[in-house]
Design a protein around this nucleic acid. Structure first.
Lengths: 232, 232
DNA sequence: CCAATGCTTCGACTAGGGTCGAAGTATGAA
DNA sequence: TTCATACTTCGACCCTAGTCGAAGCATTGG
């Protein structure tokens, strides 16, 4: 009668709202602590703890310990793909192309991912920095090169101050809407902050949308754009 | 806080064992009645009826009436893909319900996945095309090379006609039984159709099984087999 | 050593939902 | 019409599983 893997167990795991929120938060690719995830899911830490244990037992997430913090991530790319597939279903009977409302379009172009830039612009920034040799991929890690240091200083970012924090300088962050990396970590955060200070863009209140001015777009493309192939 | 569609609702729908069994049964692509699905899920018809109503409200399944029968099918290919993705996760997590009867063996060797070839043969085809440079993996995408174009033309597939459709030409599709890719997309569909026209294989009525003839096997291995290491 | 922080376990409460018997509706056949 | 089949709705039962308060570990810092 029953053939194939037990799909219901895994689906039931995702089927709880709190757990779904946790997984959704982790789809940013960023590693988050139990306390952060509890806030994201809207439950207490005790509850989140039990959920995290179940998700881990179901091999949907993994963790690594760092001091007294426990950082959780999705267990692998297949998990992300499955979640995306479910998102596609939940979005409605839409075709493969996600129906893009006006708000979605803005979200896709530029948005904050916790504190750094994501979306098309975020990807463009990442590619631009890579092309300029400012950052370099080292396995799954990301390192800031000498050129990157100089570029940041020229951009007006106090690199030395960033290095004092416990947050890693550079971290790749997977974008679920495009499945490509953008730049997270202390540098990612500082660069977004700097762009806002320079008036290139500003965050639309109450949303995740980052609104770029025309001048901001031009300045961005000039400084970080990769061979004129910048996002629209 | 909450971004994106409500994934938990859909997942909870799939998360019930009875409903998961129903969906699993419908993955054959065959249309089944409420009574048949009740038997498949191991519940009474009343229970199945409520489940079917919920699945339909969640747009996971659809029905058409024929006399006093109500035939249910999956609502679309996206549903099937999401289920396959979940199966991949469940298989990886070790929640296997291995029940390999003779029917399952045939299913494992060659079956349809919606409209293209899956199972051992499907994987062999994918590997063979890769080895011949007909397709190339580009991140999570799959591209048809010049060699691939030539190979398809030689095989008797009208490539130009395929390119007119909105469906992507090549798409990797993860096989839950082996956790390896096989070829989906317009090309995948066209190749299976062509094989049936050539008499290499035919679909067994009412099931997902693809039955290869001895001559078909030989022809398949000769044209697409990878260094004699073809599936049995 | 103690205090603070981050996370886990225990226990009890509760709600939501799956389940089936029984009765109700619709369709087709005799 | 009358009966049979296919499916749905209602009502009631039961039980899993999510939730949080409180207490228990574990790690870090002083």
């Amino acid at each position: 009668m029953k053939e194939g893997p037990d799909i219901s167990r895994i689906a039931a795991l995702i089927g709880d709202p709190a757990r779904a929120n946790i997984l959704g938060a982790l789809m940013s690719g960023k590693a988050l602590t139990a306390t952060e995830l509890a806030a994201e899911a809207g439950v207490t830490v005790q509850t989140a703890s039990t959920h995290l244990a179940k998700l881990e037992a179901g091999r949907l997430i993994a963790h690594r310990k760092s001091g007294r913090h426990k950082y959780f991530t999705l267990a692998g790319t297949e998990v992300g793909h499955a979640l995306e597939a479910l998102m596609g279903l939940a979005a409605g009977a839409g075709h493969l192309r996600t129906r893009t409302g006006p708000r979605d379009l803005a979200l896709r172009e530029a948005r904050v991912c916790y504190n750094h830039l994501a979306g098309e612009r975020g990807i463009a920034l990442y590619q631009g920095l890579l092309a300029r040799g400012a950052i370099a991929e080292d396995g799954s890690a990301l390192i800031l090169t000498e050129e990157g240091n100089a570029l940041l200083a020229d951009f007006g970012v106090d690199v030395a101050a960033l290095q004092k924090g416990r947050v890693p300088m550079c971290r790749p962050c997977l974008d679920w809407s495009a499945r490509r990396n953008h730049l997270a970590g202390a540098v990612g955060r500082a660069m977004l902050a700097r762009m806002q200070v320079l008036g290139w863009c500003k965050r639309v209140e109450g949303t995740r949308v980052i609104d770029f001015s025309a001048a901001g777009r031009a300045a961005f493309d000039g400084r970080f754009g990769v061979s004129g192939a910048a996002a629209s």
